[in-house]
Design a protein around this nucleic acid. Structure first.
Length: 419
RNA sequence: GCGGCUUUGGUGAAGCGGUUAACACACUGGAUUGUGGCUCCAGCAUACGUGGGUUCGAUCCCCACAAGUCGCCCCA
């Protein structure tokens, strides 16, 4: 137990960090281009924030949160997602006072108690974006394009974008009703899960794999047929903007988001080879959330991507950057008299801005040369009795395998020239 | 939360009711004097996920648990 991390958590090891840095750097670059600014919110919040924001009755809130009571008797929850926190920070810090439209992004750990699987961790990392304060569908499109642009710039291929509208408080109740009316006569034919969903979230029945091929499924009312005028227009406009941008997508009337706050636009980007956890990014509009949390009515859109899944996709497509230490110079010390001068030389190299290393174990020359080779050193600086006496150092080019004796005072300049 | 599969050293793995638990890579040392990447030699699992049981005897059989993985679910 002492030597294993809690279930569903993972160490990101030195060899893997380059991939994470690569993705994070791309994220920052693209967010800057799109005009989104980074925000960092606490990893834990008052439990109530998520209950209100995400909604009781959702799986995330009901069965997946890490909730505990702190020593001050407050109910605290490790953030299962970042939208609620972002909205809270927006309200608490009155960011709306700075401009009508506030565009934020975040990168960080999220926590959900779920059964671990590849691409589904209990501590996982999300990058997400929130645009608060604008109802125009052009922002929906911008956000989707940002997600697409990110994944594209990482080099990912074979992604699919699905789009839907889940309606608004005006038209969704009617649709719910229509669905329940439609399914009621078939209730006994539905799977157990769906019978439970019938009352609470009939929309999810559409998404059920077990019932997918039942005859009556195909004819179920589609939300897109039940949208109010405003929602319909909005949805149409989002599609127009995407087409103008040359982004292909498919409409999926069965795409439903599991968090209560979504309205109108919902979208998901999938990378199918990831199997059961193929959703790489997902999000949509949530026009009611800010008000729900005590702010003025404020339209908003956002999405999140699962970084582990993005990394998995990159790995599958062979797009992860190489990792490995670069070494400009490896100091090889021979004999006890050379140790101190060698260590001093090492420091001087590093102070001069070079990446330098040496052996600390007092090994044989052969072993030290091996180490230099393994460290990928461009040069080996050999310091033996002779060199110490002469105030010189043997400079060996590891690739060309040629060497020359150079006065100690000149090595650093010589190295800098050739690197 | 549900079901299937898997679990041998740092890694990839072979094995089988009773063996010194193969082999490869990695790692460490060596192949006469101060020089890497090739080659050769040697070393490197009181140990087969954990805990029980069956058996004269279990890494190999049974049970439980754990972890991983695939699917469901959920979602990113």
């Amino acid at each position: 137990m002492l030597t294993s991390a809690p279930r569903g958590t993972k160490d990101i090891l030195p060899g893997q960090v380059a991939g994470w840095n690569y993705v994070e750097q791309k994220i920052r670059e693209i967010c800057a281009r799109f005009g989104y600014e980074e925000i960092r919110t606490p990893m834990f919040e008052h439990t109530e924030l998520f209950q209100r924001g995400i909604g009781e009755g959702t799986d995330v809130v009901d069965k997946e949160m890490y909730t505990f009571t702190d020593r001050g008797n407050r109910s605290i929850t490790l953030r299962p997602e970042n939208t609620a926190s972002a909205v809270r920070a927006y309200l608490q810090n009155k960011l709306y006072g700075q401009s009508d439209l506030v565009k934020l992004f975040y990168i960080g750990s999220m926590f959900r108690y779920d059964r671990p699987q590849a691409g589904r961790m209990r501590e996982f990392h999300q990058f997400g974006v929130e645009a608060l304060g604008e109802a125009n569908p052009v922002v929906d499109a911008e956000i989707i394009l940002l997600a697409v642009e990110l994944l594209k710039s990482l080099g990912l291929k074979d992604l699919s974008l699905s789009l839907n509208s889940v309606g608004c408080p005006h038209c969704r109740p009617a649709y719910r009703q229509a669905l329940q009316d439609y399914f009621r006569p078939h209730l006994h034919e539905l799977c157990g899960d769906c019978r439970e969903r019938f009352e609470r979230s009939p929309l999810r029945i559409l998404d059920c794999k077990a019932d997918a091929d039942k005859g009556f499924m195909a004819a179920a009312p589609k939300i897109t047929d039940c949208l109010c005028d405003e929602c319909r227009e909005h949805f149409g406009a989002v599609q127009d903007y995407l087409r103008d941008a040359g982004v292909s997508f498919e409409l999926d009337p069965r795409l439903v988001r599991g968090l209560d706050y979504y309205t109108k636009t919902a979208f998901e980007i999938k990378y199918a080879p990831l199997g059961a956890q193929s959703a790489v990014a997902g999000g949509g509009r949530y026009d009611g959330l800010v008000e729900e949390m005590g702010g003025k009515p404020t339209p908003a859109v956002g999405f999140a991507t699962g970084l582990e899944r993005v990394l998995l996709a990159l790995e599958k497509q062979g797009l992860l950057p190489e990792t490995g230490l670069e070494t400009d110079a490896f100091v090889v010390a021979l004999g006890d008299e050379a140790r101190r001068p060698a260590f001093r030389l090492l420091q001087q190299l590093r102070e001069a801005g070079l990446q330098a290393g040496m052996d600390y174990a007092g090994r044989s020359m052969k072993a030290q040369m091996k180490q230099a080779g393994k460290a990928n050193a461009r040069f080996a600086l050999i310091l033996g009795e002779d060199e110490v006496r002469e105030g010189a150092v043997m400079l060996k080019d590891m690739e060309k395998s040629v060497q020359q004796k150079v006065p100690l005072a000149e090595v650093i300049n010589k190295l800098k020239e050739s690197i």
